[in-house]
Write a protein that binds this DNA or RNA. Structure first.
Lengths: 275, 275
DNA sequence: GTGGAGATGATTGATTTTGATTGAATATAG
DNA sequence: CTATATTCAATCAAAATCAATCATCTCCAC
């Protein structure tokens, strides 16, 4: 190929790698190694360095281009589908709830699954801005309070400044949040400014903030962040890499990983609780 | 395509699978296996992973593209008695609405029927405390705002003091109210104090108060009234006795009786408006 | 020339992915 | 309804890939 017999500077190599990525979306380590005439070990080192600078995504066997911010899938897409991870996360999060708690439920499919499991408890006060969760809890014996606000069709939640006055009047014990993306630098992020605004408000009014996010959310960042000085007390997820886990624990965020068997165990537990 | 006969990265395989799916709607596991040159076990693993991310539907023997399904019961409604009368009342009430209005929709089946007919208008701002109406208007192009508050299961509305702060912040052009009972002495009445409280709040924030009530409501009184010094600008009903009509007109309340043919005429009217 | 800092390529053990095998679950035919 | 044939999910060994380590190489200053 056009590669001159000369040595390649690191910067030069990175340009070539980026070009390969733009051409093909994904490339294998061996392909890069062959194209640039260097050992796979060096390619991996380069890829890792570039990944840490956010230039690309690392995948097993190669690398993929990083897309800026993922477009938000329609709610119906995420809804009917059964996701084992989300189910496990929701089931694990159940252990954080006690009878007589006042809890907030955010939008999002994982939190919605949690809403479906709340029949086991007694006398909860449930505050939510999610119409899906409200529909789910309509027949439940719990006390149900909806925040007002402007209806956002894509997430089926109530958001924006109009939700502010009612949120100022309440305090919840635990806020179960969903999110489009989460990074340790920016905290939660979403695609809509009004939604981010409401999330921020809620978290200020909660004694404990709990984020339910599967591993696809961790490390990815969406359009709007929910305030720079974010706070998170508990993260429930299905898998997390060691680095982020350590960063979170340094910030005193408790990390709970919903293990494969956790679901069954806890399910039995809640069944017992369910009279 | 640069499809070299070499190794395929996971991301590449998923792209190819999605392409096959778009071409054929449904594909068998064995077909994918043959097309991509990989074992069926790996194909199944990929399909499961993609299914959990909502990219496709899994079917026995293969996979199918995910299509948007629109069955949205969310809130199922029970049509009660007098539905023909209610229909006429709602259709008549339509004539009171103009494009770009800001309107409030109360709970109740008659108001709900009105909500179903609002697609004809352009750029309404709709404020409501009725979850049924909200579900109905979810797909509409109008701006939709929900008052917050405590959920009252029997009427599926949001009521109580918590709805107060948000109502204080808005002004609506027209408030379309429903009620359990109505008398000239007490005004509207209902069975729940919180609901009455919210009704009162709404009417204070509306430039024009419009009551939709079939003849079974007129003259009967329920448990709680909505304030002693009630005000009503328009009453839309299907039949009214002369005495009450006169009393109302003395209070400067306009009375509109939805005649049997009124529905059709106005329907034509709205159809025209619907461009 | 000498020595150190940084980078490269090979090696190694650990991790991940793959494909074959198995018994269970599901669909199809009679 | 039962019997037969697919298809599935779980398991395991083999292959591929990874991250860490180490010896070597280059460049540059002294």
């Amino acid at each position: 190929m056009g590669g001159n017999g000369h040595k390649l500077l690191t910067a030069e190599r990175e340009q070539r790698i980026m070009q390969l990525l733009r051409d093909a979306e994904v490339v294998t380590v061996s392909a890069i190694s062959a194209a640039l005439g260097m050992s796979e070990a060096t390619v991996r080192r380069d890829l890792q360095a570039m990944h840490e600078r956010g230039l690309l995504e690392r995948v097993h066997g190669g690398a993929a281009i990083k897309q800026e911010s993922k477009p938000e899938p329609l709610f119906s897409d995420k809804e009917g589908q059964f996701s084992a991870e989300k189910q496990r996360i929701a089931t694990t999060a159940l252990t954080l709830i006690r009878d007589h708690d006042t809890i907030f439920l955010d939008g999002g499919s994982t939190v919605l699954m949690l809403a479906r499991l709340l029949d086991s408890f007694k006398a909860l006060t449930i505050v939510t801005n999610s119409l899906m969760a409200a529909a789910q809890l309509m027949e439940s014996p719990h006390r149900l309070i909806l925040t007002g606000g402007e209806f956002r069709a894509i997430s089926r939640t109530l958001v924006g400044p109009l939700s502010s006055p009612i949120l100022k009047n309440i305090v919840v014990d635990k806020a179960f949040m969903g999110t489009m993306g989460f990074t340790t630098s920016d905290g939660m992020s979403t695609t809509d400014a009004n939604e981010a605004y409401t999330k921020t408000q809620v978290m200020e009014r909660a004694r404990q903030v709990i984020l339910l996010a599967d591993r696809s959310k961790l490390g990815s960042s969406s359009f709007v962040t929910c305030g720079s000085d974010w706070r998170l007390d508990v993260l429930v997820t299905d898998a997390i890499d060691a680095k982020m886990r350590q960063e979170l624990e340094e910030r005193e965020t408790r990390v709970i990983v919903a293990g494969k068997n956790a679901g069954a165990k806890i399910k039995a537990d809640t069944t017992r609780r369910n009279r």
